[in-house]
Amino acid sequence: MDVFMKGLSKAKEGVVAAAEKTKQGVAEAAGKTKEGVLYVGSKTKEGVVHGVATVAEKTKEQVTNVGGAVVTGVTAVAQKTVEGAGSIAAATGFVKKDQLGKNEEGAPQEGILEDMPVDPDNEAYEMPSEEGYQDYEPEA
């Protein structure tokens, strides 16, 4: 019985440690998101679009440190934060509304985080759909 109880105690310690790591990862992701939003706020009209992409990228980098179902929630929060940063930029006159959601080359930025393969159960990952990809044929 002692062996059984000791095993359960060790398992509990492992769960607590994993929860603490997840909590730490979420806190880091939130900190990076805040950094990115402050970065966007300090940019001029020309830099705002690039700044919004930076927020998304920093958040995406930190999301990889967070495991399990938390990833889905962090990704949703990050996307809403990026959308909010863009709205703030438009409201303050840093950028025109028609410039939001495009990178410096004018290509749409939507789907940055949505296409990231995420499995809350950590069982399997699927690649994003290939609808947006084109076949590449090298020139002879």
Rank of each mutant, 00 (worst) to 15 (best):
P128R: 11
Q79V: 11
F94V: 03
A76T: 08
K60P: 04
E126M: 04
A89Y: 07
A30S: 03
T22H: 01
P128D: 10
K23I: 02
G67Y: 13
A124D: 11
Q99H: 05
K96S: 10
A89M: 11
A76R: 08
D119M: 08
K21M: 11
G84W: 13
A140C: 15
V48T: 02
A69D: 14
D98I: 02
P120H: 07
F4Q: 00
H50T: 02
E126H: 08
V40G: 01
Q99M: 15
A78T: 09
L100H: 02
Y136W: 10
V74E: 02
E35P: 01
V55K: 05
K21E: 00
E46H: 04
A91L: 09
V118C: 10
L100I: 09
V70E: 02
A89P: 06
S42V: 11
A30Q: 01
V49N: 03
V15R: 00
K45V: 15
P138H: 06
G7V: 13
T64R: 12
K80T: 09
G31W: 07
K102A: 03
D115R: 06
A85E: 04
D2G: 00
T33Y: 10
E104W: 10
V49L: 15
E137V: 05
T59R: 02
S87I: 14
G36D: 02
T72P: 02
V55W: 09
G36P: 01
P117Q: 12
V77K: 05
G7D: 00
Q134W: 09
A29T: 05
V55C: 06
E13F: 04
S42G: 07
E13I: 02
A107G: 09
E139I: 09
Y133C: 06
P117T: 12
E57R: 05
P117C: 12
V63T: 03
S129G: 09
V74G: 02
A124V: 14
Q62M: 11
G41V: 08
K60E: 01
A107C: 04
V16H: 03
V63M: 14
K97M: 05
Q24W: 11
A56T: 09
Y133E: 07
L100R: 04
G73Q: 15
K10Y: 10
S129T: 12
P120F: 06
G41Y: 15
E35V: 14
Q79D: 05
K34W: 15
K97A: 15
E137Y: 10
T81P: 02
T59N: 01
E61C: 07
Y133S: 03
A11H: 00
E139T: 04
G31A: 11
E57W: 09
V70R: 02
E46P: 02
G93T: 12
A53Q: 14
A78R: 11
G51T: 13
V3I: 04
A124M: 11
Q62E: 06
V95N: 09
M5N: 02
V74Y: 05
L100T: 04
F94A: 08
Y39D: 01
P138R: 09
T44V: 12
G41A: 11
K58M: 09
T72R: 04
Q62N: 08
